[in-house]
Design a protein around this nucleic acid. Sequence first.
DNA 1: ATCAAAAATGTAAGCGCTTACATTTTCACA
DNA 2: TGTGAAAATGTAAGCGCTTACATTTTTGAT
Lengths: 348, 348
Amino acid sequence: MEETKDLQNNMVPTLADVARTAGVSTATVSRCLNLPDQVTEKTMRRVMAAVDHLGYSPNYSARSLAAGRTNTIGAIIPTMDNAIFARGLQAFQEELHKNSCTLLVASSSYEEDLEEEQIKTLTARGADALLLIGYHRQPRLYEYLEKRRIPALVAWAHDPESPQMSVGFDNRGAMKSLAQEVLGRGHKKLGYISAHTESNDRARDRITGVLDALSQAGLNPDDLQIIETNYSIENGGKAFRELMSVEDPPTAIMCGNDVLAVGAVRTALEMGLQVPGDVSITGFDDIELASMAPVPLTTVHVPHRRMGVFAARSLINTLDNKPQDQTVELPTTICLRKTLGAPPQGKA
Amino acid sequence: MEETKDLQNNMVPTLADVARTAGVSTATVSRCLNLPDQVTEKTMRRVMAAVDHLGYSPNYSARSLAAGRTNTIGAIIPTMDNAIFARGLQAFQEELHKNSCTLLVASSSYEEDLEEEQIKTLTARGADALLLIGYHRQPRLYEYLEKRRIPALVAWAHDPESPQMSVGFDNRGAMKSLAQEVLGRGHKKLGYISAHTESNDRARDRITGVLDALSQAGLNPDDLQIIETNYSIENGGKAFRELMSVEDPPTAIMCGNDVLAVGAVRTALEMGLQVPGDVSITGFDDIELASMAPVPLTTVHVPHRRMGVFAARSLINTLDNKPQDQTVELPTTICLRKTLGAPPQGKA
DNA sequence: ATCAAAAATGTAAGCGCTTACATTTTCACA
DNA sequence: TGTGAAAATGTAAGCGCTTACATTTTTGAT
């Protein structure tokens, strides 16, 4: 009983077991699995038969330890509970899968410290590379990653100046264009609802974009009323109410993302305001929600899925030492729907 | 130069390096990291100083290999590109993190074969446990998991009969209740837009729920027109159009989820139909979109985040051999908003 | 001071795989 | 049929950690 070399005895089979039952060395089995064309077809068949027979599948911890590569890529995103990241991440994962990599996920909840912790964790877990959102983080983290030779790609943002690998888009330019559309309609007084900007460079860049447009149009950027709040429909509504509760309220409210904008639209309607008759509202991202809003949202379309796919490819190419663009900027487009119009009579 | 024991020389430090610089054995360092109270405070300080000095962090591949545990839990979900899974997954991840576990993610794209492949991959990658959506899959997979002693928890569904560990809700019962609401309004002829049911037991159960209500109300279940389609707003619209294009169309269309329902609502309005004046429509899930729809959706609220949290706890407790409910059913609630009304005059 | 038991630490054997290097087999060509 | 180079396979040394077991140190009761 103790000599049962056959080990059906409810143990998980190892490479050595496969080798034994196939009558070859462990090296050969390993080659069958990893370097198929270094092996005779006959041997391959024998080994594969053993693999099937035993129900063998490799132990990745061991493989990773021995090979010094995990084929795992980590992603640290603010939250999945946000369609834009969820969708990008989904595309990212699909592309990784096509290249037999797996995805290790962590979320930072938009907190810088937590993100740092997650970076440490994921690298310790052996992520071969990392997907990060935005540029903003302690320089020591970039040093840490560099020291460990862990490629990190920044997504959702794009800064041609930065040495960091990235796949993103021009938050600032996109929002500037949208602001120009708004100003072009004759609005002179804008309000802005933003995500918290403290450690969110995308949010900051978008605001800067509006400011750009404002000063370019000869308006005073200091007049732009900005409220920062957490990402949610409800908060968008609250912020809207606040912005509109002043003496001479803005005629257009631009929002840092669609979720906030939808909240604003809803609240506007609740307040009995016409959109865009009494007040124009814009979003950013073009999530599914945008076209479904009570009044379909004028917003900026961002190619989230493409971003995910590109990010995956970049990282994989880098790991494979294939030539590879350091940084790619994806175009965004302005999506004019129904929430942007001219300011009300006498307000222009 | 070659004798530099100090190895700043851009190598990632190992346990042995820490041990050497702290002047203790590797075992002691390992204990400091994993079993802190088996170690003197003095030693601990020395070791920690070395850890900090070298910037050491453990290699999880090695740790996993040696310890036979990865502290990694895998989740295989149909897609993250669907708010309900994204949100649940987010909560799941947060809870795992609280317990120092990481999340390995894969998606099956609602394809049974792909799911099987992903199960194999994730277990090979050393996932200590698995989160799976729904019960439907080849029995051999359950056997496979059992043989490897990998606890797998089924979420999003609940079958008290099944031996499988689960955290879910009663898809059938919930949809039955909603159908009863619909029938209670006087509707006699219903249509149903479903996700593909082939390998989706949640979708099947929901249909069964409607059928239950129908036959209980003395109506003929065979009259229920059902269209199966892929998850998307657009497809919801198409299906709606098809259901309504018959001689004597249904007065209420129930949908397997909110996304399909929103598509239906939008299309109804495009067709010049009043909702619920001309046709009632219902959804399922209560995602954010639901209350934002052109007409706010009557639907079933499902506690996705709680489900994620419970799932994480169950799995972790199981891994820690803590006592643990085999299966928990979370309550759902019916969310009556605006898309359900009485059938049009003369149609009741 | 003494000594046994308890606490802390050390030693060293793997965990399951990859891979450099060594050995054997195969094969084209003379 | 014999030869050498190329192809296939085998041997065995780790990869960085955990942990059973052995050894040393500390502790506290005498």
